[in-house]
Amino acid sequence: MPIVTANGINIAYRDEGQGPALLLCHGWPELGHSWRHQVPALVAAGYRVIVPDMRGFGGTDAPGAVEDYTILHLVGDMVCLLDSLKINRCTIVGHDWGAPVAWHAALMRPDRFRAVAGLAVPWSPRGPHGSLVGMARAQGLDRFYMLWFQEPGVAEADLGRDPYETHRRLLVGASGASAAMGKGWPLMIAEGKGLVESCPSVDVLPGWLNEDDLQVYAATYARTGYRGGLNWYRNLDRNWALTAPWHGAAISVPACFIAGQLDGVLRMPGMDKALRAMDGVTCTDFRGTTLVPGAGHWVQQEAPAEVNSALLAFLAGL
């Protein structure tokens, strides 16, 4: 992967195709590799597709300070990556943690991001009562996984003990098949356990996740560790404070949402309200929601054909 210096860090990225630019932002605990099924389809449809490893992941730098992973840094990385590639405007697409990056990029810089597609995580504007972890903390939900992530070193040790087993359990555990069987990984981590042990063991890999792809994740995280991505979670309170200037603002550029119908994120508190509000309230030019039957959280990997079709339909309407 080529590397460019942007926003003060070295960003590794793929850049393929010609035509209108698309920027694909991955989530946690993933890499740009998670878009492997989208890149060929989008390039074949006449788009230039840029896929970075995000700050703290894979081949991209992982700064040492926790506070270097705020939403302003993450959006800034994407703006400066466009600058480095001499791209004036693009459509931004984000999955999982990449979705809040994409939503905030569209909110903060509509002059640079002409449209936005969020996958798995709907747009949830800044609320009046603090961040998600702040509210969980106030309710005493200390074993909520995002709160469990907050103490530096704890989650790193658990996840990094065996990256192959970690990714095997986390990826399969948040899939549609696991959700359908009631075996998804838990929002609340059992007392005395870590996240990995709280997820069911996996006997056979599903068809959408082959051994080679699992090894890409495992080998990369064995080299980098998990600290960079976990620091995104450690800035949720800070992000709530930093985004005060945009409180009450709506996303004005064309927007769409795509998710697996069995994604556990959609069952988290407040997500049903966020889904409804995108249509004309929090997004003033919302072009629709696509829920893919049978798919879970890793929707673009579990159901690539359906996701590619939905993305191309959205892009064709711009």
Rank of each mutant, 00 (worst) to 15 (best):
D111W: 06
I189S: 03
D158A: 08
T91W: 02
W148Q: 13
P163T: 06
H73T: 11
A102I: 01
P100N: 06
R109P: 03
M135N: 15
L170I: 14
L147N: 13
L141N: 13
D158S: 08
Y145M: 14
G134L: 05
M181R: 15
C90T: 12
R112C: 10
P152C: 09
G94D: 05
R161H: 13
A190P: 06
T166F: 03
K193H: 11
Y164D: 05
G98D: 04
A155R: 05
H104F: 10
R168H: 06
T70A: 10
P152Y: 07
V75I: 15
R109Q: 12
A136S: 13
A177P: 00
L107I: 10
L147R: 10
M188I: 14
I87K: 11
G76T: 04
Q150C: 03
M108I: 13
A177E: 11
G76F: 05
G140Q: 10
M146A: 14
G140L: 10
Q139F: 13
D111N: 10
A190T: 14
T91Q: 00
R161V: 09
L119M: 13
V75F: 11
G140E: 06
V154I: 14
P186T: 06
V93Y: 07
H129N: 15
V116N: 04
T70V: 09
Q139T: 12
R112E: 05
G134Q: 10
R169G: 00
Y145K: 07
I87V: 15
V79I: 15
I87R: 12
V75K: 11
W97V: 04
R109N: 08
